[in-house]
């Protein structure tokens, strides 16, 4: 009996130990890897970008060992729920619709959405009335696609799997306009392929559609991890690490 009891206690202690160890020390992070400059794969296939650098800084702050997993955007929340990873750091906007399925940390950046159009198109206004009959592209399952489908009913909305594909179709003239995050579009406009196009109209940040910025998503009830991230976000904002990462990618403050 005694031996059995000892084994049982040892077993419980061991599982408890390994449970805390794996929860505290190892975090698997899911990201898209197709959303430059926030997250993308470099020439050697390694994940890079603002999101990745922020996540690494947060992990360092939390003394956690983090590994990254690239996952297609439209499966990124289901894969979190299926425990393929523990957190999403992929420029995901904090919206009410998503909050039904996952919990979010505080925001770690927020940039407005903007339209880009062909320089020669002559499009100067981007309200629904002005873009009536035009073809607008954006990435599917994003806040931008919801916004367009709700408010730009007179336009044809084309949904793409990745932002780069939508941009490519604007450059080739298949689209009249593209709506997306301004920081992402800015990165593309700087490139050779983006030379065709320019920003038009104001920045959009209606919280009803665009949420309050991008946060880190965790599974519902994973409060310990969420709190850990929140503390770490506050810490890197305070100690200057955030600013360093910000300045590496952007000439303006994205927080």
């Amino acid at each position: 009996m005694k031996i059995l009891k000892a084994i049982a206690i040892a077993g419980v202690a061991l599982t408890a130990l390994s449970a805390t160890a794996s929860a505290d020390m190892k975090i698997r992070i899911g990201t898209e890897g197709a959303y430059p400059p926030f997250n993308f794969k470099d020439a050697s296939g390694k994940l890079q970008g603002f999101d990745i650098d922020i996540a690494k800084a947060l992990c360092a702050e939390m003394k956690a060992e983090c590994t990254f997993v690239a996952q297609d955007w439209d499966g990124i929340i289901p894969a979190l729920l299926a425990k393929k990873y523990d957190a999403i750091v992929a420029s995901m906007s904090i919206t009410d619709e998503r909050k039904k399925k996952v919990d979010f940390t505080d925001k770690y950046y927020s940039t407005p959405a903007k339209f880009i159009v062909d320089k020669k198109s002559g499009i100067t206004k981007v309200d629904p009335e002005s873009l009536k009959g035009k073809i607008i592209g954006t990435q599917g399952s994003t806040i931008h696609s919801n916004y367009l489908e709700d408010l730009y009913k007179g336009s044809t909305i084309k949904l793409y799997k990745t932002q780069d594909e939508a941009n490519a179709d604007l450059a080739s003239g298949r689209l009249d306009a593209v709506l997306a995050d301004s920081a992402v579009l800015l990165e593309w406009l700087k490139k050779k392929e983006g030379a065709c196009c320019k920003f038009t109209g104001p920045g959009f940040n209606d919280p009803k559609y665009f949420g309050v910025g991008a946060g880190i998503a965790v599974r519902k009830g994973d409060d310990k991890l969420r709190e850990g991230f929140n503390k770490a976000i506050a810490a890197i904002l305070a100690n200057g690490t955030y600013k360093k990462i910000n300045d590496k990618y952007f000439p303006f403050n994205v927080y």
Binding site: W73, D74, G75, I77, P78, L81, E97, K101, G137, G140, S141, N146, K158, L159, Y160, K161, D169
Partner: peptide
């Protein structure tokens, strides 16, 4: 076909899933 913005049965299904899970 949905990879080139033609939303067929599978495309619409994936879209509905990605919004409702």
């Amino acid at each position: 076909a949905s990879v080139v913005t033609i939303f067929d049965l599978m495309g619409e299904t994936k879209l509905a899933f990605s919004r409702t899970f």
